[in-house]
């Protein structure tokens, strides 16, 4: 078991023939992901990486039966790509691209929700179900199969967390990078519930950061709905207010969005909160033994 994606998931790539799209699609295929085609407008009919290229998502879905799209188009075209996927019947769009305008994502997300499509990202490393399916840019080798679910706003902290979990002798069911932008698709709440419902997942690692209040919402949700143990780390305890720390969404506005308020809320909800990401592995071991 796992959440959202597995070895049977059929995936297309939007921005298939571009540099990034090509490189990462190839890596995903090598991992075992079923990339069944891709979309690059104007290149329909070509074969790329052994798979068919289509002009539109609609055509790609009709021909391949894909349910998931991995999006690698440039920032200015992200909203267009997400809306195209949503209206073509894609069930889950995984948006890797960083730098999509916030206004565009408001519209794209509203369209996705209206069409019943889930979105992961933008500005994220993607999603991986260990040993089955990788849709994104993470190094597959560090995700060993196991019983810990992982949700993170940050790419490299996803790797750091997964690596520690595996070094402690555990492994990962599915890891999801939800992205560091102000407006993102699936958030902690929905994913926590999916891991709660997944028979194989026994503990959940949640990695957040300063800015916004998704972690606070997650804390309230955990208190009411999640019975599996949760380990959390919030990045940016030492970040100054008013400065954007790399991610577009990682900014403390006035007195809101600090690491401390998020850590306090999670602790109060019974979550095992660690002060340093170096402690994630040990904390998982503690909650599972």
């Amino acid at each position: 078991m796992s959440i959202l994606v597995n070895k049977d998931t059929k995936v297309i790539v939007q921005g298939f023939t571009g540099g990034e799209g090509t490189f990462h699609a190839e890596q995903c295929m090598a991992y075992g992901t079923q990339i069944v085609g891709g979309v690059t407008p104007g290149k329909g009919g070509q074969i790329h990486l052994g798979q068919p290229v289509f002009n539109t998502v609609k055509e790609a879905v009709a021909a391949t039966g894909a349910t998931v799209s991995m999006v690698f188009v440039p920032p200015a075209f992200v909203a267009d790509a997400v809306m195209e996927a949503a209206q073509a019947g894609i069930e889950l769009a995984v948006v890797i691209t960083e730098g999509a305008p916030v206004r565009d994502m408001q519209a794209a997300k509203a369209c996705a929700v209206k069409n019943g499509m889930m979105t992961i990202g933008p500005n994220c490393p993607g999603i991986i179900t260990a040993d089955e399916c990788k849709i994104g840019i993470m190094p597959g080798s560090i995700f060993k199969k196991g019983n810990v679910g992982l949700i993170s706003k940050s790419g490299t902290l996803t790797y750091e967390g997964a690596n520690q979990v595996c070094n402690e002798g555990y492994g990962i069911t599915t890891a999801v990078g939800i992205g560091g932008d102000p407006i993102i698709g699936l958030s902690y709440k929905q994913l926590l519930q999916m891991f709660q419902d997944d028979a194989e997942t026994e503990a959940i690692v949640m990695i957040g950061e300063i800015g916004g209040d998704l972690e606070i919402q997650a804390a309230a949700y955990i208190k009411e709905n999640i019975t599996k143990p949760v380990v959390a780390f919030i990045a940016g305890q030492s970040a100054p207010a008013g400065k954007r720390m790399g991610h577009a969404g990682a900014i403390i506005s006035g007195s809101a969005g600090t690491a401390k308020e998020k850590m306090d809320a999670l602790s109060a909800a019974g979550v095992k909160v660690v002060v340093s990401p170096a402690e994630i592995g040990k904390a998982v071991k503690e909650v599972l033994s």
Binding site: T156, L157, E160, G180, E209, A235, S276
Partner: peptide, 12 residues
């Protein structure tokens, strides 16, 4: 490398 790990490194 990475904004999250960069913040996490400062925190550590």
């Amino acid at each position: 490398n990475g904004a999250g790990l960069a913040m996490g490194t400062m925190d550590t």
